[in-house]
Nucleic acid binder design. Sequence first.
DNA 1: AAGTAATTAGAATATATATTCTAAAACTAT
DNA 2: ATAGTTTTAGAATATATATTCTAATTACTT
Lengths: 199, 199
Amino acid sequence: MRPARFKDVDIIEAALAVAAREGPAGASIAKIAAQADAPTGSIYHRFRSRDVLLGEVWLKAVTDFQNAYIKLLDGSDVERAALDAALFVPRYVRENTAEARLMLLHRREDFLVPGWPVKMLEQAEMLGRQMQAAQQHFCRKLTGRDDRKTMRILCYAMVEAPMGAVRPYLEKGGTPPPLVDSLVEATFHAAMALTGGDA
Amino acid sequence: MRPARFKDVDIIEAALAVAAREGPAGASIAKIAAQADAPTGSIYHRFRSRDVLLGEVWLKAVTDFQNAYIKLLDGSDVERAALDAALFVPRYVRENTAEARLMLLHRREDFLVPGWPVKMLEQAEMLGRQMQAAQQHFCRKLTGRDDRKTMRILCYAMVEAPMGAVRPYLEKGGTPPPLVDSLVEATFHAAMALTGGDA
DNA sequence: AAGTAATTAGAATATATATTCTAAAACTAT
DNA sequence: ATAGTTTTAGAATATATATTCTAATTACTT
C-alpha cells in the first residue's frame, strides 16, 4: 500500500488557511489544492465534498476552542476562572488567528450547510449542547443562579464582549493589542455587577 | 418612454432582503430576481453586475447607519451624546434588522470586491474617512484627547462592545432584548473609566 | 521480481450561476 | 395613429467551479 503524501490533516490545514484568508465562500477546491500543493483529485480522495471539508475545518476549530474554554471553567477559584475564561478569548485569537477568523468573522451557517452527513450534524449539535451545559453549570457555581437573565449577562461578560473587542483587529488582518485585555476585564466586572439586580 | 416597473430602489431592496437572509455569497441574481418578482434581465438593465448591485446595497446600509450615528454625536450634552450613540446600536438593529445583519454578520470584503467601479470605491473610502474624523473630533470633545489609546477605548465603548452584545441575537434571526441596553450602558461607563489612565 | 492496493495526478465532465442577447411590450411625443 | 425609446422578458450563452474518472505511481508484500 502506497503511503499518503497528503494526509487528512494537511488538507484540513490548507483549507483552514484559505478560508481564514478569503472566507468560506472564497475557499474553492482549486485554491485549497494550490495551498496544499496537491491535485484536486487527492482532496476528493479524502473528503466527500467541499462542504464536508469546510465543515470539518469548522468543527475542528470550534471543538478546539471550546475544549480549552470549558477546561478553564474548572479552576478552583470560581471568580478567577470566570475572568480567565473571558481573557482566554483575546489570547486564543493571538495564538490561533486563522481559527479565530473562521469562527468570529463568519456565520455558523456559512460552514454548516444542509447536506452535511448526519454524523457531522450530530457533532455540531453535541458541541452546542456541551457549551450550553458548561455555561449553565458554571453560572450556577459563580452566581448561585442559572435563570435566563443571569445566563445572558454572564455570556456577554465572558464571550460576547470579548469577541466584540477582538473582532475589529481580526478584520484588519491583525491581532488584538494588550489594551483589549483591560477592556475585557473592565467589561467583565461591570457586567457582573448587573447580576445581583432583580429576580 | 415606457415607465419602469422595477426601480433601482426596488431591486436594491430585494437584494438586501436576500443578502440579509442568506448572506452575500448566497445572494444569487436568480434569488434576487425571484425576491423582486422580476426577470434577471431587468436587474442587469439597472446594474452593471451582481458585484455592483451588492456593493450598492452595502454602501446604502453603511451610509444610512453612519449618518444617523454621526448626527447623534452632535448633541449639546457630550456625555449624553456618547451614551446615546452607544445605545443607538441596539436600537438600529431592532429597527433595521436586515441592514444590521448585512453589516454585522459579514465582512466589508464580502461586498467590496476588487472590480468595483472607481466611483464606488471612492464612496467607500469617503465613508471610512468621515467616520474616523467624526470619532476623533468627538473623542477630543469628550475626553480632551485624541491619542490612539483613548480613541480605541472610546470606539470599544461606543461601537464594538454594543455590536458584540447584539450579534448573537442577529445570528439567531432575532433582535436584542432590553437587557442588552443595560449591558451596553454598563460597559460604556466601565470603559470610559479606563480613559483617565496614563499618558 | 512481480503482484497488489492505495494514492496521486490532472484531464474531462457536470453543474450552478453570472451575463448577454433578441424580441416583444408599454408608454410618450409628434 | 405612429414612430421612437425605454423597459421588460426570458431564452441563450459564457464562465467559474465542483465533481468524477481514468491512467499512472508508489511502496509494500509475497
